[in-house]
């Protein structure tokens, strides 16, 4: 078998489970998710709305603040356990070692401060810099993000910038302390199509220059095709397929991945009249079907699907589907 872990993982998440106490009992939004991120790689986390992508990212940042949330499992960053870390120690990691950018840069920035002030604030939270040095660094960062006349933009308020420029400012802020891991939760969803491509290029380029690993959360397989090294497909709170981009795109192992791939509009040539979408809708965390969660929407469904499939390894891919079982032995933990 191929050695898929040439270097120590930067981040390893093990059996991460996020549940919420609600009036309708306990609902499990993220269910025993495990994955690893190696230094410098760009991993894409894809899935339909509600699959638990944001919660997984927020959990890594320790940002699940809902008092009704219950988080179990392990999140190790550079070998250090983040789950249960004191608030003070977590603050030194956030923004410094692991940074995050969000979908809507308008609401994600404090409206009453200039973007320069907000970038400087993060710098000064983690580095010993004077106000002036922090400002100079903020201008440099904005320039690096491809902002025209950064020394003017630095004194602008978020509402005075276009969506794309705001997202650049957010990225500048996130990268200000040279994090080893950047989590981008749908960073282009709120932007125009043309701007989307620019921001993706930028993230890709920065990832190369800074050597940061990136978790790019998206529901758009087209985005994955553009930039990712590796793909993790999430469905109803679980990772159902994981592997390097090429094999996953060439030979998707899970019917859900297959469905997602069919829904990408072609990059070149004529756009088909209608994209083939997966029939049905994902189940809500409150009422998931027994056995394989995708089975009600699956065209290949057969008897074994009544029992929850474990992850099977097929060459470089891990697939939670019995169709893959025919090929190789299970690798994942058997789920109860």
């Amino acid at each position: 078998m191929l050695d898929r872990t040439p270097s120590e993982p930067l981040l390893s998440v093990d059996s991460l489970t996020v549940s919420f106490r609600t009036e309708h009992g306990l609902i499990t939004a993220v269910d025993k998710v495990s994955f690893a991120i190696r230094p410098g790689e760009l991993v894409s986390l894809v899935g339909e709305s509600g699959s638990g992508k944001s919660l997984t990212s927020l959990a890594v940042m320790g940002l699940i603040t809902d008092p009704n949330a219950i988080l179990t499992g392990s999140i190790r960053y550079k070998g250090r356990e983040l789950v249960g870390l004191s608030r003070h120690k977590l603050q030194a990691v956030r923004g410094n070692e692991i940074a995050m950018i969000f979908q809507d840069p308008m609401s994600a920035m404090t409206p009453v401060y200039t973007i320069g002030w907000q970038i400087a604030e993060q710098l000064r939270a983690h580095r010993k810099l004077t106000k002036k040095q922090a400002r100079t660094r903020a201008i440099e960062l904005l320039a690096e993000m491809g902002m025209p006349s950064p020394e003017v933009q630095v004194d602008r308020y978020p509402h005075q910038l276009s969506g794309g420029m705001r997202q650049r400012a957010m990225i500048a802020m996130a990268l200000s302390c040279d994090p080893s891991l950047l989590i981008a939760d749908e960073p282009t969803t709120a932007l125009d199509v043309t701007v989307q491509a620019q921001i993706l290029r930028l993230i890709e380029q920065l990832q190369r220059n800074h050597g940061s690993a990136v978790i790019l959360v998206t529901h758009d397989m087209g985005v994955v095709a553009e930039v990712a090294d590796r793909v993790m497909v999430m469905y109803a709170g679980r990772i159902v397929e994981e592997g390097p981009k090429e094999p996953v795109f060439m030979h998707p192992g899970h019917p859900y991945t297959e469905g997602l791939l069919r829904s990408i509009p072609p990059m070149h040539g004529v756009r088909p009249h209608r994209l083939i979408a997966i029939p049905g809708a994902p189940p809500s965390p409150a009422n998931r079907p027994p056995g394989c969660r995708f089975s009600p929407r699956c065209a290949y469904r057969y008897e074994p699907c009544g029992i929850d499939p474990p992850l099977f390894r097929k060459e470089q891919q891990d697939i939670a589907c019995y169709r893959a079982e025919a090929l190789l032995e299970p690798v994942g933990v058997q789920r109860p």
Binding site: R94, T110, Q122
Partner: peptide, 24 residues
């Protein structure tokens, strides 16, 4: 959302309260 961002930046709770929540 900007409070979540402030936390993601690694600011102290006190600073988040005074500079972000209270200020707005």
């Amino acid at each position: 959302d900007f409070i979540r961002t402030a936390r993601a930046k690694g600011l102290s709770e006190r600073r988040i309260l005074i500079r972000h929540a209270l200020r707005t």
